[in-house]
Design a protein around this nucleic acid. Sequence first.
DNA 1: CGGACTATTGAGACTCCTCAACTAACGTGG
DNA 2: CCACGTTAGTTGAGGAGTCTCAATAGTCCG
Lengths: 220, 220
Amino acid sequence: MLLSGLDGVKPRLTDRQRQRLAAAATRLQLAPRTIVYRDGDPAGAVFINGGGVVITYKDMPSGKRRVAGFRFYADVFGLAEHGAYVNSARAVTAVTLYRIPTETLTTILRQDADLEFQFLCKMVDELRQAQRKSIIVARRDAAGRVAMFVDMLRLIGHSTHPDVIEIPMSRSDMGNYLNLALESVSRACAQLTRDGILEFSRRGARIVDRARFYKLVTSG
Amino acid sequence: MLLSGLDGVKPRLTDRQRQRLAAAATRLQLAPRTIVYRDGDPAGAVFINGGGVVITYKDMPSGKRRVAGFRFYADVFGLAEHGAYVNSARAVTAVTLYRIPTETLTTILRQDADLEFQFLCKMVDELRQAQRKSIIVARRDAAGRVAMFVDMLRLIGHSTHPDVIEIPMSRSDMGNYLNLALESVSRACAQLTRDGILEFSRRGARIVDRARFYKLVTSG
DNA sequence: CGGACTATTGAGACTCCTCAACTAACGTGG
DNA sequence: CCACGTTAGTTGAGGAGTCTCAATAGTCCG
């Protein structure tokens, strides 16, 4: 049951569990570009994304910014290591966050094994993102990486049109995630457009040639 | 407790738990280059490494081989998704493995909450590897990647001399992990040797200049 | 000792990065 | 409502680094 539970299944909370968490949580409304916490800060709380997009990243000694991932609705983030946050978190769009002190959460989880398990799945899910990223970044061609990134957003996004994908983050954020210079991201978008596979706007993309797009995404 | 337990702490099994698992496990002795399981095989069992090195990888449609990671002593591997293995596993050195049918394991874990938790930590640990890899591969310079890889082996390996690191895998396996051509790995090794930072032999390395090595590793 | 595999080294092609200029979009205040 | 400053995005040219192809050494094992 544990093993199968970790087998990539998305957890769902009951209403009672939601209420329990809501009572313990502080609701935050943050404007775009607001820092949620910084790398190295004492990790006093865990966050649940209640809407909007958050980016987690770490500035490296070299000056480069490594993006760990993006957190969307219902994602949990703020995983600590040795009592301190390992990444920084920043609001990409306007976001609603639920902030739960670690101690409070621990108490609640101790009283609700099921909820504890759901949280666990969330943690595993967060870490699974790193695997996805590994696969994406393993590609050598910028266009392929961007295509896989767009496909990732497609799978996450609950867009009205199946071919229209919202891209909430900047080219720079994309580049830091994909391990590409922002100019390379821009050029890759231009090339995909020229090739008639995708069409890009400032904050979105549209799949033009679904077959070739799928082929490009899976040819990693 | 759960949250702190996932906070990067290495689990240790009690003797009774070991015995319990040993009774349920099949012991395998595999020669180097033996395939343990293949990507897509029905995932009927989980494996515990009892000694030696195993590589987990996936062959991509493009012909490239993406290495997920290496499994050392006491590591658990064979995580499934939707009932099938997501990676292939192969013995790098001669290895001893303990093969435990998933169903048996599930039964045991259901009866031992503590053991269940230990296993969970293992799973998280496995996934954490992906994060480490992301950080390593994010570097642009081949020498830096190889240095970080060597440092990773240093932290894992319980070598007699602190400056001598055993490298059990081939340059090709290293390259597939580091996302470098095997020639580039070779060249990076040669460069690190020329620079007087590391010295490489066929299956090992020695730290020559600890200060510069550390600097190179952390300047990612 | 030979054969197969692994590792090293070299030369040229290719891709992305860096630096730089320019254009577009946004939002703030007059 | 428009002008302007700021930020985000695009495009170009040159350079750095790795990949590929190819040939050469080195190592392991029968």
